[in-house]
Design a binder for these strands. Structure first.
Lengths: 150, 150
DNA sequence: CAGGATCCTAAACGATACTG
DNA sequence: CAGTATCGTTTAGGATCCTG
C-alpha cells in the first residue's frame, strides 16, 4: 500500500485520486472521520497494537494495556468490532471466555498504527529535545519575529 | 534492557529494542502517549496531512479543515509546535501574517499519519460493508456461540 | 470472567466576544 | 488576521454495582 514515489515537494498536488480522497477527509461529514476516530482513539491504538501479537482474552488486554478501564476497553473493542477490525468469539462456558483477534482488515490497519506508534517511541528523544530547546532558545529568522505563544 | 551500551543516538534500529519500546507504550506513564495523543487527536491528524502539501496560514488551515473551531486549531497547532512537528513563523506586519509549516520531524510523522488516513479512505467501502454485514448476519463458528453485544 | 447499567467528574469542544 | 479569554455544552472516561 501507499506505493507513492518520493513526493516531498512543497505544495505538490499529488495524484488526482489522492486529492479527492484527502479532500474528502477534510470535509466535515466524511464518514472516514468516524473510523479514524475509533482507530486513533486513546485506547484504540493500544488495542490494535496489542492484538497484532495474537489472540487475547478480555482480561489479558485489560492487564496488558496499563490504565484502561473495563468500560473503555469494552467500548473500544465494540467500535473496532463494528468497523470490522476485530473479531470477537465468545465461548459458552463457565466462567465466560471471550477471545479477541484481528481480522485481515484489522491486521492491515494495525500495522499502520504500529508504524506510527513505533516511530514516536523511536523519535521520542528528538521530540523531547525539541521541546526543551524551545523553552530557552527562540527561532530567529532574519527580519522575522517569531514570538512564543502561551 | 540489554543493548543499552551506547544508546545516546536519537536513531535506534527497530529490532530487539522494538519489544522494549512497545512494552513501554503499554505502560501508563509512557511519555509517548502524550505525543501520540497530539498526533492522533481529532484535528492533529488533519493539520499534519494538510501541512504535508506545504506552508499554510492560519486562516488557510481553518478554511481547509472543515468543522474546526479557531480555538481548537490554535491549540492543536501549539501542541504540534511544542512537539517539534510544526514550525510557526510570525511576520510583524499589519494585518498579522503567520505561516505554519512542517519541520523535518513533522514531515516524517505526517507521512505516517497520511498513510493511515489514506488507507481508511480507500478501505472505507469494505469497512462500511463489514458493518452492515454484522447487522443481519452473525458470525457462526462451529461449536461456538457469538452473540452480539449492544 | 466478561461485560452491562448507572452515576459522576474532568476534559474536550464550540460559539462568542475581545485584543494587538 | 491571528489569535486569547470566557463561558456553556457535550463527550470521554472512571468507579461502582450488578448479572449471566
Amino acid at each position: 500500500m501507499q506505493s507513492k514515489s518520493t513526493d516531498k515537494s512543497a505544495d505538490m498536488p499529488v495524484t488526482l485520486t489522492e486529492q479527492f480522497l484527502r479532500g474528502n477527509l477534510f470535509a466535515e461529514a466524511c464518514p472516514s472521520r468516524e473510523v479514524l476516530k475509533h482507530v486513533t482513539s486513546r485506547w484504540g491504538v493500544l488495542v490494535l497494537v496489542a492484538l497484532l501479537t495474537g489472540t487475547h482474552r478480555f482480561s489479558d488486554l485489560r492487564r496488558k494495556i496499563g490504565g484502561v478501564s473495563e468500560k473503555m476497553l469494552a467500548q473500544t473493542l465494540q467500535w473496532l468490532e463494528t468497523d470490522g477490525f476485530v473479531l470477537r468469539v465468545s465461548y459458552p462456558v463457565i466462567p465466560p471466555r471471550v477471545e479477541y483477534s484481528l481480522t485481515p482488515l484489522g491486521n492491515e490497519v494495525g500495522l499502520l498504527v504500529r508504524d506510527l506508534a513505533d516511530w514516536i517511541e523511536v523519535k521520542l528523544p528528538a521530540i523531547l529535545q525539541a521541546r526543551t530547546e524551545k523553552s530557552d532558545a527562540l527561532q530567529t529568522v532574519p527580519g522575522v519575529v517569531t514570538h512564543r505563544l502561551r
